[in-house]
Design a binder for these strands. Structure first.
Length: 277
DNA sequence: AGCGGGGTGCCACCAACAAA
DNA sequence: TTTGTTGGTGGCACCCCGCT
């Protein structure tokens, strides 16, 4: 089987990585978004996109165990399917033109957005030519989770503001305001002290990555650095959802590493910061 | 071990309508 | 006018298991 070239990571495991062929496949799929083309190119999807993404998930899971052991990735489940949900969409093109993966709290469902009854905040990576993206937080949580987060923000507006307006989070340009409500949600006064935050429906931060950044072995270190910077927000949100953080250093037995440390003690390894400078 | 069929569960919807 | 809820509705990948 043809495979892209490999590199030896610091975790001493061979990892397949994204190559120009990965982006070429996605560009081709954007031009020929139909089943015959996809099936003819399926080998490229498997080798150039899916295999490297799975390897990346595996590698990031090992690294997450060091600074965010409650966040986990699984090569079999963390990658989003390439098939679009076309049920009720006017755009019936069958395939996404990006590949993405999601690292979730181990105590929560791996589902994302409104489909996830018991979702969590987590970390996200999205591969797309010219539009690759790294993000963290929770995207369009279902109603019960959204209500919990809003209640927590209303309860502790200052604490939430400290996390979101921290220079580490500001590096990503603040919360994504793409789907904000125009008025205050039901139950909250227009002049609520936390009004600034209560109109959000998603609580995510992130940044675009260049094609150069996503190709090659440097991606792993880059994601590690960005994920570390995003963890205070992820942990604040998960705490609001009743999901506890874990202590680092027990990567082999992450499930037993749960503790109830306060979020303020979760400062990641300073070395990680240099990775995104 | 490899293959194939069937069961199971999942997927960054969307429009209409009720409620405020 | 805007938020929040509900109902409608396919197609695919994965997994298990029996068969060869």
């Amino acid at each position: 089987m043809l495979r892209p070239y490999r590199f030896l990571s610091t975790a001493s495991c061979f990892c397949v990585m994204f190559t120009p062929a990965s982006l070429a496949f996605l560009r081709g799929l954007a031009r020929h978004n139909n089943k015959p083309w996809f099936e003819a190119q399926r080998a490229s999807y498997e080798n150039d996109v899916r295999a490297p993404m799975r390897a990346l998930i595996e590698e990031m899971d090992v690294r997450l165990a060091r600074f965010a052991p409650e966040i986990t990735g699984d090569p079999k489940r963390s990658m989003f399917r390439i098939n679009r949900d076309i049920r009720f969409s006017k755009d019936k093109s069958p395939y996404k033109t990006h590949a993405a993966c999601w690292f979730r709290h181990q105590g929560a469902s791996h589902k994302v957005g409104g489909e996830a009854e018991e979702g969590s905040a987590g970390l996200y990576f999205h591969l797309q030519p010219g539009k690759s993206f790294v993000g963290g937080g929770i995207w369009m949580p279902p109603r019960p989770a959204l209500n919990k987060i809003r209640d927590a923000i209303a309860e502790d507006a200052r604490g939430f503001a400290q996390v979101v307006e921290n220079p580490r989070a500001r590096r990503f340009g603040g919360l994504d305001d793409g789907a904000m409500l125009k008025r205050m949600p039901r139950g909250f006064a227009e002049d609520h002290p936390a009004a600034q935050w209560l109109r959000y429906q998603s609580f995510t931060i992130g940044r675009l990555l260049t094609d150069k950044q996503v190709l090659g072995p440097g991606l792993v270190k880059l994601l590690e650095g960005d994920f570390a910077l995003m963890m205070p927000l992820v942990r604040w949100l998960n705490r609001a959802l009743g999901l506890r953080q874990a202590t680092a250093g027990l990567n082999a037995t992450k499930g037993s590493a749960i503790s109830s440390e306060p979020v303020s003690s979760s400062t990641p390894d300073p070395e990680l910061y240099t990775a995104v400078l």
